[in-house]
C-alpha cells in the first residue's frame, strides 16, 4: 500500500491504495467522486478526463500514485457558490447531453479547449472535443454549447 496526497477541487485528500490502482478508480472509489466516469479503460473514450495540474488528462491511464502532490479538478468542482458554471449552463441550454455519461469528460475537455483557445471556430471546437466520444448527441448540441459559452468565459476572466 502506498500513500497518495493530493488536492481535488480545492480540498486536500490523503488516501492509501495499492500501487497498481488506477487514478480513475481512486477518484471514484477512494474519494467517492463518482462524477468521473470510466468508459473504456484504454485511453480512447475520454469519459474519465479530469484537470490534472491545470490540463486535461485521462485518469484511466494514470496510476493514483502518479497524482501524489498533484492538483486535480473533476466535474464536481465546476460549480461555484451553488451555481452552475457558464459551460454547464450552455450545455443545458443547447442540449449538449443526453444520457450524461460522456458529459463530465466532455465538460472538462471543453474547458481545457477554451482555456487554450478562448474563441474557437466550429472546426476547432470539433477538433478540441474529438478527444471525447459521445454516442448520444451527434455532437451538434455540444458544439453549439461550447460556441455559446466561449464569450461568457472570456467576459468572466
Amino acid at each position: 500500500m502506498v500513500t497518495v496526497r493530493l488536492n481535488v477541487n480545492g480540498v486536500a485528500h490523503e488516501g492509501r491504495c495499492e500501487p497498481r490502482k488506477l487514478l480513475a478508480d481512486f477518484i471514484r472509489e477512494d474519494l467517492g467522486l463518482t462524477g468521473t466516469h470510466v468508459g473504456c479503460e484504454h485511453g480512447i473514450c475520454g469519459a474519465c478526463t479530469i484537470m490534472f495540474n491545470g490540463e486535461a488528462a485521462r485518469s484511466c491511464i494514470m496510476l493514483a500514485v502518479q497524482a501524489d502532490g498533484a492538483e486535480l479538478m473533476t466535474v464536481e468542482g465546476l460549480m461555484r457558490d451553488g451555481k452552475l458554471h457558464p459551460l454547464q449552463e450552455a450545455f443545458r441550454e443547447h442540449h449538449g447531453l443526453q444520457c450524461g455519461f460522456c458529459t463530465p469528460g466532455m465538460l472538462i475537455t471543453a474547458l481545457d479547449l477554451l482555456r487554450t483557445n478562448p474563441s474557437p471556430t466550429d472546426r476547432e471546437i470539433r477538433e478540441g472535443i474529438s478527444a471525447v466520444l459521445c454516442r448520444c448527441t451527434g455532437y451538434q448540441g455540444i458544439v453549439n454549447a461550447v460556441r455559446a459559452a466561449a464569450p461568457t468565459l472570456v467576459a468572466g476572466r
Binding site: 471514484r28 472509489e29 467522486l33 463518482t34 462524477g35 468521473t36 466516469h37 470510466v38 473533476t74 466535474v75 464536481e76 465546476l78 460549480m79 452552475l84 454547464q88 450545455f91 443545458r92 441550454e93 442540449h95 447531453l97 444520457c99 450524461g100 455519461f101 458529459t103 463530465p104 465538460l107
Partner: peptide, 22 residues
Amino acid sequence: MARREDGRFLTGQGSYVDDYRP
C-alpha cells in the same frame, strides 16, 4: 424547453449502476 434531468448529469451527480456502493 431545457431538460430537467440535466442538473444532476452536469454536476457529476448522476446515479449510474457503478456509482452505487453498498
